[in-house]
Simulated scan of single mutants.
Amino acid sequence: MTNRREGPRRRAQGELEGLVLEALGEADGPASAGWVQERLGGGLAYTTVITILTRLLAKGAVTRERSGRSFAWTPVADQAGLAAHRMRKVLDGESDREAVLASFVTSLEPEDERLLRELVLGTEPDTKGTD
């Protein structure tokens, strides 16, 4: 017998932000927090959605415009842009940027290292099999 409390699964850091951005990306235009809340389902509180949208606004991942008494939200960045923002934030917090970048690059899988090299050199990434 286990004494574990059953409850909602704890989400990974940034997971909700990614889900909110994904939902906004599916909207036909600017969307309300209520629309995002409905789209996500799962019993997420309206205040939680507002908090996530406000954090995304501070990160430059969304914009907002007045819509009646509320706001309509539009994505500016996608999940990849949000991940890049988090990576930059970590890097900005380190004093030895060269050591951090060197450690990061040497820890990459060979395919990721190749892709990064192509991106840095400005060459076309090898995308065989895609249009």
Score class of each variant (00 low, 15 high):
106 T>I: 06
59 K>S: 05
1 M>G: 15
34 G>I: 01
108 L>D: 10
121 L>A: 12
110 P>M: 12
2 T>R: 13
112 D>K: 02
117 R>L: 13
11 R>T: 00
35 W>L: 06
66 R>P: 14
27 A>E: 05
25 G>A: 12
13 Q>V: 04
56 L>A: 03
117 R>C: 10
80 A>H: 13
81 G>P: 02
65 E>M: 04
58 A>I: 04
44 L>Y: 13
38 E>V: 04
128 K>Q: 12
110 P>F: 05
114 R>K: 10
114 R>L: 13
30 P>S: 10
71 F>K: 10
47 T>N: 11
45 A>E: 14
76 V>M: 05
10 R>F: 03
28 D>V: 12
79 Q>Y: 00
108 L>K: 11
9 R>I: 05
82 L>A: 14
58 A>M: 06
102 A>I: 00
24 L>N: 04
130 T>M: 07
124 E>Q: 09
78 D>F: 01
123 T>I: 07
92 D>R: 12
81 G>M: 08
48 T>D: 03
69 R>T: 15
76 V>S: 03
54 T>C: 03
34 G>V: 06
27 A>F: 04
47 T>C: 08
69 R>S: 15
64 R>T: 13
64 R>Q: 15
8 P>S: 09
55 R>G: 10
130 T>Y: 12
104 F>S: 03
8 P>K: 12
76 V>W: 05
6 E>R: 13
100 V>W: 03
74 T>N: 10
103 S>V: 00
42 G>Y: 01
108 L>I: 06
17 E>C: 07
118 E>R: 12
60 G>Y: 11
